[in-house]
């Protein structure tokens, strides 16, 4: 990968600076862009970590990333262009870090967005002031939050006001939902699902609540939640279906786990702990609202 950058660029000069970094129009590099990704970061350390994550995202999905960071004064930009040898040439993606007074950031972003391409907004960290979140998220194709950081309540409140809100915690749960669903593919096991009373979870509270809400919304009735222990990552889910019990549990220090239940041999299931870049990248593949998530969000216990 070849990477070049320029610091302290006035917003009006960003496009020409990026063109220069690509080597100008004659250099033969291809600027491939399929979307805009606006990322909110807090402080220099957060910006550095964000750029690391974006490196992985950009490799799989060519994009213009605009990282916004609150500071002081008129917003200025650090621009960089990362280029890879691919597809018989050199493919370049762009990153723009905009720092300045918070009130000026939304208009700075608006000026830098590439036209006609979808806009994803990824908000990192907690939300102290919802104004900037609304301003950045308003009109975005998809607003990406993480209920582990902002809480499920905020996401529930945001949902009716935004065209599409996504939760990285929901994406993290995808392999768990797959594994749980797989327990009930057989006809006998499917019958047991009708008797599901509650689940016992060892894991983060927001993910446990999302799982329970997903089951409620899919089954159309109440499903109890017992958070047996709070842990940093999800470790096990037990489903109590009358006198039958089904389990999915992660094997220690591994990317897979075991699922089983009455009439089912224990079988291996994939339960990877996915790093943030890949989670965000997965969100970028979805353009509209995800109905199953919206249904689950509506079923989250108030």
């Amino acid at each position: 990968m070849r990477e070049e950058q320029r610091s302290g660029v006035a917003l009006a000069q960003v496009e020409s600076a990026l063109s220069d970094l690509r080597g100008g129009e004659a250099a033969g590099s291809v600027r491939a862009t399929t979307l805009n990704l606006v990322v909110r970061a807090v402080g220099d350390e957060d910006v550095a970590e964000t750029l690391d994550v974006l490196e992985n995202v950009g490799r799989s999905r060519p994009l213009r990333a605009i990282v916004v960071c609150s500071g002081s004064g008129v917003p200025v930009a650090d621009v960089s262009s990362a280029c890879w040898a691919a597809a018989g040439g050199e493919i370049c993606t762009e990153r723009i870090v905009v720092t300045g007074e918070e009130e000026g950031l939304p208009s700075a972003v608006e000026a830098l967005l590439l036209p006609d391409l979808p806009v994803f907004v990824w908000w990192q960290g907690a939300v102290d002031d919802e104004t900037l979140l609304y301003q950045l998220g308003f009109g975005a194709t998809r607003l990406i939050l993480d209920s582990s950081e902002v809480g499920l309540d905020l996401i529930r409140r945001m949902r009716p006001r935004m065209p599409c809100v996504a939760d990285l915690a929901w994406r993290r749960l995808a392999p768990w939902r797959e594994s749980i669903a797989s327990l009930f593919d057989g006809r006998r096991q499917r019958a047991a699902l009708d008797h599901l009373l509650g689940i016992e979870v060892r894991g983060p509270a927001n993910e446990a609540e999302l799982l329970a809400a997903w089951l409620r919304s899919r089954l159309g009735r109440q499903v109890g939640l017992d958070l047996a222990s709070r842990t940093k990552v999800l470790n096990s889910v037990e489903l109590h279906c009358g006198d039958k019990e089904f389990t999915v549990r992660r094997l220690r220090r591994n990317d897979h786990g075991v699922a089983g239940g009455p009439g089912l041999a224990d079988h291996v299931v994939l339960l990877p702990v996915v790093e943030p870049g890949r989670l965000v990248a997965a969100e970028l593949d979805h353009m509209g609202a995800e109905r199953i998530f919206d249904d689950a969000l509506a079923a989250v216990a108030a």
Binding site: A174, R177, E178, I180, A181, S182, F184, D185, G186, R190, L193, L215, R218, L219, E290, R291, I292
Partner: peptide, 17 residues
Amino acid sequence: AENPLRVGLRVGGAAEP
């Protein structure tokens, strides 16, 4: 969809044993 938990899952994947 016989299994209500399958709705919306594993787009592009296979589910049946």
